[in-house]
Amino acid sequence: LVRYRTISKIPQITLNFVDLKGDPFLASPTSDREIIAPKIKERTHNVTEKVTQVLSLGADVLPEYKLQAPRIHRWTILHYSPFKAVWDWLILLLVIYTAVFTPYSAAFLLKETEEGPPATECGYACQPLAVVDLIVDIMFIVDILINFRTTYVNANEEVVSHPGRIAVHYFKGWFLIDMVAAIPFDLLIFGSGSEELIGLLKTARLLRLVRVARKLDRYSEYGAAVLFLLMCTFALIAHWLACIWYAIGNMEQPHMDSRIGWLHNLGDQIGKPYNSSGLGGPSIKDKYVTALYFTFSSLTSVGFGNVSPNTNSEKIFSICVMLIGSLMYASIFGNVSAIIQRLYSGTARYHTQMLRVREFIRFHQIPNPLRQRLEEYFQHAWSYTNGIDMNAVLKGFPECLQADICLHLNRSLLQHCKPFRGATKGCLRALAMKFKTTHAPPGDTLVHAGDLLTALYFISRGSIEILRGDVVVAILGKNDIFGEPLNLYARPGKSNGDVRALTYCDLHKIHR
């Protein structure tokens, strides 16, 4: 019993810090008490220290592992850092350059016999395009090294910054494609005289377009951006097909006994025919423009016929181009109408809503002055909100995010209106959640004399007048207030005048 009563005193000691020596009952000389009392004092002292730490809000209350900052290894790049964003855009520009100039170089340097010394005699450094290609190869190699040090988000939505895990993730992902696209074939085969082989191998750079397509997928929600990307894709495919079309004609031209190829026909049409040795002929500019003209006309199913396939190889390629053109029509131009419709969806919704308003007016036989006010209010409210119901949009977000959005939407009023000066951010967040926005066209009466005042109004834009009878008592403008002081009276009061809008007004109100 003594032991039980001794232990039962522990909660009292913990909360009230009572010393055991003052209790005459606990001072009985028993061996059990002498053993338990020192333990009680020690526990009391420890609990006292913990309570003191909690009340003082000291940093040592938290466990040590929670006080440590997340460790980022040296030379690790955050995937959302500004440097990584700028670097990704730079790589994107280099990939676009590669997609345009690599097929052009591979096709127009394929057994090209233009006048001038061969590239091997001039030297590697004197070729501007080769120098640019070398810079692109170096940048792609540097990009691989950067990807080995860039964080990523795993399946659990955690940012991984450990170098080993980053390397394994990159090896399992895009490393092989990036490595093949970054191989400097110019340096590996330079001086061997195989410019045709170098041009063909350099087309491996186009593998990076797969990554670019995935990154550009984030802009699919913007109709104008999608339309622009589709047109660029169409032009890029036409450019690639033009390079292939020229390569076919250029390879067949020296081996044909009869002059029936499209390059021969082009030379005869523009007065620059090929001679018996295969030299001469149109310039590279004429060849490229004509090839691009043929691919565009074939892809769009126009086909004027002034550039036509004559050999079997050219006919087979033309059939493939027609098939590609039909697929592009289905996948690209078939979506253009939907994209344009999405661009004008706001206008369509406006006309639909206006039609419903006019049908309501016609069905209920609203008189002319009231009908005009109804239409003007709808037009003004639509121009202010673009038909978007803010309350319906915010309803799907958590309250903390709703408060931040409301604070942002009402920031101008909260910053410049005098009653809100000096208020804490928590108070402003709470008030912003209570605001209701209303609009009024010129001549609209917001409050009639004798109406119950259940709200306090803040003028965000425009001006109003307060009338008693036919006498203008006051004219209020931006950041002015009218209405009933909230919670100042037990019952809502009545208006002693009319409140009429002089201009288009936007008002925020808080109800009782």
Rank of each mutant, 00 (worst) to 15 (best):
K66P: 04
A69H: 06
P70I: 05
I72G: 15
R74D: 06
W87V: 01
L92M: 06
L92Q: 07
L93V: 12
V95K: 01
I96C: 07
Y97D: 01
T98N: 14
V100M: 01
A106R: 01
F108D: 01
F108R: 01
F108Q: 01
K111S: 03
E115S: 14
E115H: 05
G116S: 07
A119L: 11
T120C: 01
C126P: 01
C126V: 01
L129T: 06
V132E: 01
L134W: 04
D137Y: 01
I138P: 01
I141R: 01
L145E: 01
E157H: 04
V168G: 10
Y170D: 01
W174V: 04
F175D: 01
F175Y: 01
M179T: 13
A181F: 01
P184W: 01
P184Y: 01
L188K: 09
I189A: 14
G193L: 05
L201M: 01
R208D: 01
L216M: 09
E221N: 06
A225P: 05
V226F: 05
V226R: 11
L227D: 01
F228E: 01
T233K: 04
I237R: 01
I237W: 01
A238G: 03
A238W: 01
N250F: 04
M251K: 04
E252W: 01
E252H: 03
S258V: 09
G261P: 01
G261H: 01
W262F: 01
W262M: 01
N265H: 13
N265P: 01
L266W: 01
K272T: 01
N275G: 03
S277H: 09
L279N: 06
P282C: 01
S283D: 10
V289C: 01
L299N: 01
V302F: 03
N306E: 01
V307W: 01
M322E: 01
I324G: 08
S326I: 03
Y329G: 04
N335H: 12
V336S: 03
S337F: 01
A338F: 15
I339F: 03
L343N: 04
R349H: 05
H351W: 15
L355G: 13
L355K: 08
L355W: 09
V357E: 02
Q365K: 12
I366M: 04
P369Q: 07
R371E: 02
L374E: 01
Y377V: 04
A381N: 13
S383R: 07
L394G: 01
K395T: 14
G396K: 03
G396S: 15
P398G: 03
L414T: 02
Q415T: 08
H416R: 07
K418P: 10
F420E: 01
F420D: 03
G422A: 13
G422D: 15
K425D: 13
K425I: 06
M433G: 04
K436L: 09
A440C: 13
G443W: 01
T445I: 08
V447S: 02
